[in-house]
């Protein structure tokens, strides 16, 4: 086994790149130094150059990934702290999530279709806005390719976390609750993590988007795709 494929070395590289980009981003305020994007690209480039497979990398990556599910559970804390505010907003939240879920499924499918995607890609892209385990279940149930769906979910998450708040700013969305809620709707856990990085209050609203859009997308995807004649 090559020295570089030792888990501790791969972990050091991953954490090192992330820490360095985060440090540089804080220093320069540059949009291009997004820590998650740079780290993913850099680590993939290193693995490809060194001829290391993802399975080998996973022996190291699993120690980081271990914290992913507990961190989603921990979102229960900001959710608890904001519960009274959320209760007052139930109707606007639920309606906006219904809109987001339907827009997400239909726009994803039609953009892919218009640009000439194959049926497998069109179906696999439908549940892309929701968290990976859910998206994979939905994809399987409608006859998509789960691994393709999983990679689209990651792309949506990275794009949302890198550009989401800037897009909302560009379209002059002012209300903090609307902004963070839609981050969770549009880009699931990664959008929520980005909202969490601003404040726990933002994280709580974003969790609501993550949960409700997950539920609505699971319910609506088979119906909408059947109505549109894709399945």
């Amino acid at each position: 086994m090559k020295l570089i494929s030792e888990p501790y070395i791969l972990l050091t590289i991953t954490i090192g790149i992330y820490w360095l980009t985060k440090y540089l981003q804080n220093k320069t305020n540059s949009v291009f130094l997004n820590p998650i994007l740079i780290t993913i690209i850099a680590v993939i480039a290193i693995l490809k150059a060194a001829g290391i497979s993802y399975d080998t990398y996973h022996e190291a990556g699993k120690y980081i990934e271990f914290f992913l599910k507990p961190s989603i559970v921990a979102l229960g804390v900001p959710l608890y702290l904001q519960i009274n505010k959320i209760k007052k907003q139930v109707i606007p939240i639920v309606i906006s999530q219904l809109v987001g879920a339907v827009v997400g499924i239909i726009s994803g499918v039609f953009i892919a279709k218009w640009l000439g995607a194959s049926d497998a890609v069109i179906i696999s892209i439908a549940p892309k806005s929701v968290t990976t385990p859910l998206a994979i279940d939905i994809s399987t149930s409608i006859g998509g390719i789960p691994s393709l769906t999983a990679s689209m979910v990651v792309m949506v998450g990275i794009f949302g976390s890198v550009a989401g708040f800037k897009i909302l700013q560009l379209f002059k969305v002012k209300n903090p609750m609307s902004k963070s809620l839609s981050m969770g709707t549009a880009s699931h856990g990664l959008g929520t993590a980005q909202a969490m990085a601003i404040s726990q209050r933002f994280g709580a609203y974003s969790s609501m988007g993550l949960i409700l859009n997950g539920l609505f997308t699971a319910l609506f995807t088979p119906i909408i795709l059947a109505l549109l004649g894709f399945i």
């Binding site: 949506v156 897009i167 839609s182 709707t185 549009a186």
Partner: peptide, 28 residues
């Protein structure tokens, strides 16, 4: 099929962000 995939990922995510936040903001 990177062009339709990338366009759909980006385009649809932007549309979801805008439609959700606008709906919530207006109803609120």
């Amino acid at each position: 099929e990177w062009i339709p995939i990338l366009a759909s990922v980006i385009g649809s995510t932007v549309l979801v962000l805008i439609s959700t936040s606008f709906t919530h903001q207006v109803l609120r």
